[in-house]
């Protein structure tokens, strides 16, 4: 089976992750959507690596993984900080950005 199918799979996962970010108000769930999007990208990278016979795609995925880990740490810390301040993690609550 052609590895391109994994790219299609990655596209579907990416769309699901994006939909989660848009539709869920729970910050943690939305955040997980972001993680899913990142992983979808990783899957695509690995699939490309396989298709082209180059290992660099995997290395890229590795880097993405590391960055994603850092991002998760900071992101969750922010969620906790917000929760402490407001006792909620709903994304609709903080509206300070209102123009």
């Amino acid at each position: 089976m052609d590895p391109i199918n994994f790219v299609i799979l990655a596209s579907i996962l990416f769309a699901i992750g994006a939909a989660a970010v848009l539709l869920r108000r729970n910050a943690i769930i939305a955040f997980m959507g972001v993680e899913l999007m990142l992983n979808a990208a990783n899957l695509a990278l690995v699939a490309f690596s396989r298709m082209h016979g180059e290992i660099d795609g995997q290395i890229m995925a590795f880097f993405v993984l590391v960055v994603a880990a850092a991002e998760v740490v900071v992101g969750l810390a922010i969620i906790i900080a917000v929760f402490r301040a407001r006792q909620t993690i709903s994304l609709d609550e903080p509206a300070e950005l209102k123009g």
């Binding site: 848009l22 108000r25 994304l91 903080p94 509206a95 300070e96 950005l97 209102k98």
Partner: peptide, 17 residues
């Protein structure tokens, strides 16, 4: 125009997408 800046993160995300 200001009304589109409703302060809702998800709304902004939607716009970005």
């Amino acid at each position: 125009v200001r009304k589109t800046q409703n302060g809702q993160v998800r709304s902004y995300a939607l716009t970005m997408l």
